[in-house]
Design a protein around this nucleic acid. Sequence first.
DNA 1: AAAAACTATCAAGTTACTATAAGGTCAATA
DNA 2: TATTGACCTTATAGTAACTTGATAGTTTTT
Lengths: 133, 133
Amino acid sequence: MHIGEITKLSGLDAQTIRFYEYQGLLTMPARQANGYRTYTDIHVEQLSFIRRCRMLELSLTDIRALLKLKSAPHESCEVINTLINGHIAEVQARITSLQTLEKQLTSLMSCCADGREIEDCGILASLHEKSEH
Amino acid sequence: MHIGEITKLSGLDAQTIRFYEYQGLLTMPARQANGYRTYTDIHVEQLSFIRRCRMLELSLTDIRALLKLKSAPHESCEVINTLINGHIAEVQARITSLQTLEKQLTSLMSCCADGREIEDCGILASLHEKSEH
DNA sequence: AAAAACTATCAAGTTACTATAAGGTCAATA
DNA sequence: TATTGACCTTATAGTAACTTGATAGTTTTT
């Protein structure tokens, strides 16, 4: 199949698919005499694997690592557990950080009410205060 | 004062300060005959304003908008409220999204236990399953 | 034959820096 | 005076993962 069909099957943009190929995440597709790439079911599988990983916000580097591990089926899968656990830790840390941020922002909002002039805006005033850093 | 001193007062890197100048976020500092930038207290204020905004993860575009508004002191400050509220909404949406992600990842983790071979890794298997998209 | 639809490559833009290179300036020391 | 070290300058490239755009060749449809 050509790239157009695999975009439909994988839900990925053609440019993105070419990009993954360039990044070494995808087995090189064969080429027709005219230069067109021809894909197989294997590529569809590879792309949906990548897509699932990306939906979990794994980095391309992580995905590359996973793909590499797949080609060593008798190694211990501990590395994979570690990788995913590390990712979970990052996600959790980011959530915590964003929750702190949300509190700061809502607190900032409470400094002002609509209808003031910018000169008297409590938000701007608050943003100007010195911070102990 | 030179750039070295203002890095200490503002807590920002020299390169970053030059970058902000280039981005039009900072009043152009005067130059000495040798080309060195000379900063004043006004620049210190501007930089700590920018720094506070960045700690709240406002984009440089948002900061640019805020700076522009400051130069129109008698306009309504409603725009500022809208901007901050919009940012809060983004942060909240991101938190929700990351919480969903965290659940998916911990669920993924429960598919496998340490000590298996990669061949039998439940995580990899799970990442390969077809997703309804 | 012409137009539409598809494919190809390559380059640049996105965000907010960070790092590197290569060089000019200044103050203090040997 | 020469040199060292700290400081300043500009310009360029790299980061992540695409996305957009330009330009051009190919295939299919009208």
